[in-house]
C-alpha cells in the first residue's frame, strides 16, 4: 500500500513538472467553455422563441430546452466526454513508455515492490490527474446555479448533474486504464497515445457504424459501444449495467497491464 502511494505520488509530481497536465487542462477549459457559451446562447434563443410561440407549438426536439439541466448541463457533459477521449491518451501515454525509455523501469522492477503495486500506483496517479481535468468542468453547473433561475427554485437538478458527472469520471477512469495498458506495450509515448486514441475512438463510434449491419452484430456492437453505455448515465439515469461494463473494462486493463509488466522480463 505504501509502495503504491509512493508511486502514485511520483506520477503526480511528474505530471505537474512536465507540460502535459497543463496542456490538457488548458485544452479542456478552453473547449468546454467555448461550448458552454454556445449552448447558453442557443438555450436563450429557444427560450425566447418559446415565450412567443409557447412550448406547445414548438417542435418536439426543443423540449430539452425547457430547463437548464437538460438544455445545457447534460449536453455539456456530452462535449466533455468527447474532449476526454481526445486528451486522456496524452495523459496515459507516459505511464509505462517513459519508464522504459529512461531505463527507470529497471529501478522499479529491482526495488522490493510487487509488480501489481507498480501498476496500481501508476493507475492511481493517472486517475488523479484525469479527475483534476474533469474537475475543471464542475465550474459550469456552479455558474448556472449561482446565476441561473427557474420557476421551481434551483436552476439545476443537481442529482441529474452529479450522476452525469459520475458517468464522466467513470469514462475518464476507463480511458486511463486502456491507455495505461497500451503504454505498457511500447517504449514510444507518441505511439502509445496514437494507439490509445485508435482504440477509443472506433469503440466510441461503433454503434453508429453498426446501424446498417445485420443482426446479431448490430446488437452486440450497440451493447459494447461506449457511446450507448454512457448515454443514460450522462442523462442522470443510474445505469447499473453501464457501471458493471466500465468497471469490468478497467479491471481487465489493470490485469492485462500487470501481465504485460511481468512479461517484459521474459523476452
Amino acid at each position: 500500500m505504501r509502495n503504491t502511494l509512493a508511486i502514485a505520488r511520483k506520477e503526480l509530481t511528474l505530471y505537474f513538472t512536465t507540460p502535459w497536465a497543463y496542456l490538457v487542462f488548458t485544452a479542456m477549459a478552453f473547449i468546454s467553455s467555448f461550448f458552454f457559451i454556445a449552448m447558453l446562447s442557443t438555450f436563450k434563443q429557444v427560450q425566447e422563441m418559446a415565450r412567443i410561440y409557447t412550448w406547445d407549438r414548438m417542435p418536439g426536439d426543443y423540449a430539452a430546452y425547457k430547463n437548464l439541466t437538460d438544455g445545457v448541463a447534460v449536453q455539456l457533459w456530452g462535449v466533455v466526454l468527447i474532449v476526454t477521449l481526445f486528451v486522456a491518451p496524452f495523459l496515459s501515454m507516459r505511464l509505462f513508455a517513459e519508464e522504459k525509455r529512461h531505463k527507470t523501469f529497471e529501478l522499479l522492477m529491482t526495488a522490493p515492490v510487487r509488480p501489481i503495486e507498480i501498476v496500481l500506483g501508476k493507475y492511481l496517479g493517472g486517475l488523479a490527474v484525469i479527475s483534476a481535468t474533469l474537475g475543471l468542468t464542475i465550474v459550469y453547473p456552479i455558474i448556472l446555479t449561482v446565476f441561473g433561475g427557474s420557476e421551481s427554485g434551483s436552476a439545476l437538478e443537481w442529482s441529474t448533474v452529479a450522476l452525469g458527472y459520475g458517468g464522466l469520471l467513470l469514462w475518464g477512469a476507463t480511458c486511463i486504464a486502456i491507455g495505461m495498458f497500451i503504454s505498457s506495450l511500447t517504449e514510444s509515448q507518441m505511439l502509445a497515445a496514437f494507439l490509445t486514441f485508435a482504440v477509443l475512438l472506433p469503440w466510441m463510434l461503433i454503434k453508429g457504424l453498426a446501424q446498417s449491419a445485420d443482426e446479431p452484430f448490430r446488437s452486440i456492437a450497440t451493447y459494447v459501444s461506449f457511446d450507448a453505455q454512457l448515454q443514460d448515465m450522462l442523462k442522470g439515469v443510474l445505469d447499473l449495467k453501464a457501471l458493471v461494463f466500465f468497471t469490468s473494462i478497467i479491471l481487465l486493463s489493470i490485469l492485462f497491464t500487470h501481465r504485460a509488466v511481468e512479461a517484459q522480463r521474459w523476452t
Binding site: 511528474l14 529512461h102 527507470t104 529497471e106 529491482t110
Partner: peptide, 14 residues
Amino acid sequence: IGYLPETPPLYPEM
C-alpha cells in the same frame, strides 16, 4: 540489494 544499472535510472524532471 542496492543496484546501479549500466544507465543510471533517473527521472530527469525530478
